[in-house]
Deep mutational scan, measured.
Amino acid sequence: MISNAKIARINELAAKAKAGVITEEEKAEQQKLRQEYLK
Rank of each mutant, 00 (worst) to 15 (best):
Y37H: 05
K18E: 11
A19G: 05
Q35M: 13
R34V: 14
Q30Y: 15
A8F: 05
Y37D: 06
L33H: 03
I2M: 15
R34I: 15
E29W: 03
A28E: 14
I10R: 04
K16S: 02
A8C: 14
L38D: 13
I10H: 04
E36V: 04
Q30H: 15
K39Y: 12
I2R: 05
L38I: 10
K39W: 14
Q31C: 15
E36R: 06
I10N: 01
M1P: 13
L13S: 01
E29A: 03
A19Y: 08
V21D: 08
N4R: 14
E12V: 06
K6W: 06
I22N: 01
N4V: 13
R34Q: 12
I7K: 09
R34S: 07
A5N: 10
Y37G: 06
M1F: 13
S3Y: 04
K39L: 13
Y37R: 06
K16M: 05
K18Q: 08
I7Q: 08
E12S: 04
R34D: 05
R9F: 02
I7D: 02
Q35E: 14
I22Q: 03
A28W: 12
I2K: 06
L33V: 02
N11W: 15
L33Y: 05
V21P: 04
A14N: 12
K39N: 15
K6R: 09
A19I: 07
A17F: 06
K6P: 04
Q31A: 13
I22V: 02
L13Q: 01
R34F: 14
V21Q: 11
I2Y: 05
N4M: 15
Q35K: 12
A8G: 06
A17P: 00
K32G: 04
A17V: 04
E12A: 07
R34C: 15
I7A: 06
A17E: 14
I2D: 08
L33G: 01
A8L: 12
K27Y: 11
K16R: 12
K16I: 03
M1G: 13
G20R: 04
K6V: 15
N4S: 13
A5C: 13
R34N: 07
M1A: 12
I10A: 05
E36P: 03
Q35V: 07
K27L: 11
K16T: 01
L38M: 13
G20E: 03
N11L: 15
Y37T: 06
A14G: 04
L33E: 00
E25A: 10
I2V: 08
A15P: 00
I10G: 03
A5F: 04
K6N: 07
G20N: 04
E24P: 10
A28M: 11
E26Q: 03
A14D: 12
A19M: 09
E24H: 06
E25M: 07
S3H: 08
L13Y: 02
I10S: 03
E25H: 05
L33S: 02
R34Y: 14
Q35A: 13
A14W: 13
K27A: 09
E36D: 08
E29Y: 03
Q31Y: 12
A19V: 07
I22P: 02
I2Q: 07
A5I: 10
T23P: 00
L13C: 01
M1E: 10
E25T: 08
L38G: 08
A5T: 12
A17W: 07
E26A: 00
N11S: 09
I10W: 15
I10E: 02
Q30L: 15
R9N: 00
E25L: 11
G20I: 01
E25D: 10
S3I: 10
K16V: 02
Q35I: 13
Q31D: 11
Q30N: 04
E26D: 02
I2G: 06
G20W: 01
E26R: 00
L13W: 01
E29P: 00
E29L: 04
Q35H: 11
K6F: 14
Q31W: 09
T23V: 01
E29G: 00
G20Q: 04
S3P: 10
I2A: 09
N11Y: 15
E24W: 06
N11A: 13
L33K: 01
A19H: 06
L13R: 01
S3Q: 10
K16E: 00
E36W: 13
